[in-house]
């Protein structure tokens, strides 16, 4: 393995790589989302039977569940980059964490919004203090806290590190917070959401859901790399390579 990872860890060399990856991710995203939407709307039954009948509104699942999964996954990704940044002191890792955060916050909001629109026809209410919805709300607050702390500190180095530490503390607290919301009474845990088990889902629905999930994932890659390029340009505006880049006038 002669690959030198630290070579790619410099903003100067990653900027053009990200630029080339963004269009590729967009193409995959469009294909996956198109496939997921087509399959979700045209290859699935309109009504689901069983003990808890779901009508057409269950189709919100194709964005609700992927958005909720991505919101949690992106938080882990963000903390991962933040931790790498703190340990190895690499600038690019902090920038990655910063680039991921807004996309994660958007997916968290979407999970809440679509949850409300699903809750209204199936539970009869837009909002319920259901453990998972409440946990998602707390996750949204954690994202907002990270973004707010970072933007409140002018010194970039301090902002990066402070926000990274906050994100790590947040991740450690997340299981405890979720547990306390899920089991307000330590003797028994409440759950309005049905226990989910992927193997019980109809194959067509599962396929559409997974296609949408991977579509959202590649979407997150595309948008975070776009944001990352902006952050790199802003922070490195004084360096020689940025000047060369603007001189040659690259289009990417």
């Amino acid at each position: 393995m002669a690959l030198n990872w630290f070579k790619f860890a410099s903003p100067a060399s990653f900027y053009p790589i990200a630029g080339r990856l963004v269009p590729a991710f967009w193409i995959i995203t469009l294909i996956l989302l198109g496939l997921g939407l087509y399959w979700g709307f045209f290859e699935t039954a309109d009504r689901l039977g069983g003990s808890n009948a779901q009508k057409e509104y269950y189709r919100i699942i194709f964005i609700h569940v992927p958005a909720a999964w991505m919101s949690m996954w992106l938080y882990v990704v963000m903390v991962g980059w933040a931790a790498i940044g703190l340990v190895f002191n690499t600038r690019l890792s902090f920038m990655m964490a910063n680039a991921v955060a807004p996309t994660g916050a958007i997916f968290t909001f979407l999970a809440l919004w679509t949850g409300a629109f699903w809750g209204r026809p199936s539970w009869g209410t837009y909002w319920d203090w259901d453990p998972r919805l409440t946990s998602e709300l707390v996750l949204f607050f954690l994202y907002i806290g990270y973004i707010a702390l970072h933007s409140a500190i002018d010194d970039v180095r301090r902002a990066d590190r402070a926000a990274a530490l906050l994100a790590i503390v947040g991740l450690i607290m997340v299981p405890v917070i979720f547990w306390s919301i899920n089991c307000p009474d330590p003797n028994q845990c409440a759950a309005l959401h049905q226990r989910s088990d992927l193997t019980q889902i109809d194959a067509n629905i599962l396929f559409a859901m997974l296609a949408m999930t991977f579509g959202f994932w590649t979407y997150s890659f595309a948008t975070s790399f776009m944001r990352l390029r902006g952050i790199i340009l802003q922070r490195e505006s004084e360096s020689a390579w940025v000047r060369d880049l603007l001189d040659t006038g690259d289009k990417a």
Partner: peptide, 27 residues
């Protein structure tokens, strides 16, 4: 959508709107 148009398209509409806004804002 079997009479659930408001809920289905409300959820999908907001998703499409936010994702498009994010991309436009980034560009």
């Amino acid at each position: 959508q079997g009479g659930y148009a408001f809920f289905v398209w409300g959820a999908y509409g907001m998703t499409a709107l936010l994702l498009v806004i994010e991309v436009l804002q980034l560009r």
